[in-house]
Design a protein around this nucleic acid. Structure first.
Lengths: 120, 120
DNA sequence: TCTATATTTCAACAATTCACGAAATGTTGT
DNA sequence: ACAACATTTCGTGAATTGTTGAAATATAGA
C-alpha cells in the first residue's frame, strides 16, 4: 500500500504543531535521521526506516519507558502532515515528511518576493 | 553575514506565533506589503511605511473600530520577532521583519539536507 | 490645556492545550 | 489462546491562550 503524505490542510495547523518545544524537538530529531526509502513490489516508495516511538521517546525524555506524552505530540505532528508514522512489526517507526519541509521552505521563500504593488 | 537559526525555544515561539489563524492572516497581509526603507541620519535603516494598526484591523476583521484583539495578536507577532511596529505620529505602523522570514526559509532549507550519518 | 484620535493594557471569562497515569489496542512468539 | 511487548486512547486536572469591553496611555492639533 502506498504511503501517502497527508494533505497539508492548514498552514496555521502546521505552525501550531511546531509551536510546542517538545514537538519541535521531535521534528528536528527526525529531520536529522537518514531516510532510506525502498521500492515496494508495486513500485510505490515506502518509508521503511526511522526511529521507533520508543526511541524517539528515549531520545527526547531520556526515560526508558514509553510516554503517552510523546505519543500525543507525535499524533499532532502526524495530523499536521509533518511526519509519517507506520507500523513495523511491534513498533511504529517515524520519519519526517520531506515534502512538507520542502513546502515550508517554498512558503517562506515566496513571502520574501518583493510585492508587485504597494498595499499601503 | 550568516543567518543563524536561534535555539529551539525561540523557534517554537516563532511557530507558535504563526500557529494562530488570525496571526497568520496578519503575517501574510504584511508580507504582501511593500517595504520602503529609509536611511536615518545615523545610517540606521528605518522602516517608515506599512499599514497602521487600524488598517490591519480593518483588513482582517472588516470592522472600522480598532480591536484590542488585533493589538494582542500584533504584540505576539512582534515579541516573536516576526514583525516590526513603530510609531508614526498618531499611528503605529507595521511591517514584516524580512530578516526573520529569510531565517525561516533557511531553517527549513537546512533541514532538507541529507544527514551525514544515519541516526537509526 | 482641552479635545479628538489611535492604540494598548487590564480584568474577567471561555476555550484550548498539556501532562499524567490507567486502561485499552494491536503485534509477535510460544 | 496466552504472555510479553509497543503504542495509543481515555479521563481528569492544571496551565495556557484567546476574546471582550472598559479604562488607561500617547500623540497631534486647536
Amino acid at each position: 500500500m502506498a504511503v501517502i503524505a497527508p494533505p497539508i490542510l492548514d498552514m496555521s495547523t502546521i505552525f501550531k504543531a511546531l509551536g510546542d518545544p517538545t514537538r519541535l524537538q521531535i521534528f528536528e530529531l527526525l529531520c536529522k535521521c537518514e531516510y532510506p526509502l525502498t521500492l515496494a513490489d508495486n513500485g510505490d516508495v515506502r518509508v521503511v526506516c526511522g526511529p521507533t516511538v520508543g526511541e524517539v521517546c528515549c531520545s527526547v525524555t531520556g526515560a526508558e519507558k514509553i510516554n503517552s506524552k510523546i505519543s500525543f505530540h507525535l499524533k499532532e505532528l502526524r495530523l499536521a502532515g509533518l511526519i509519517l508514522v507506520e507500523r513495523q512489526g511491534k513498533n511504529m517507526v517515524c520519519n519526517v515528511n520531506r515534502q512538507a519541509v520542502e513546502m515550508l521552505q517554498t512558503y517562506f521563500g515566496s513571502r520574501l518576493q518583493p510585492p508587485i504593488e504597494p498595499c499601503c
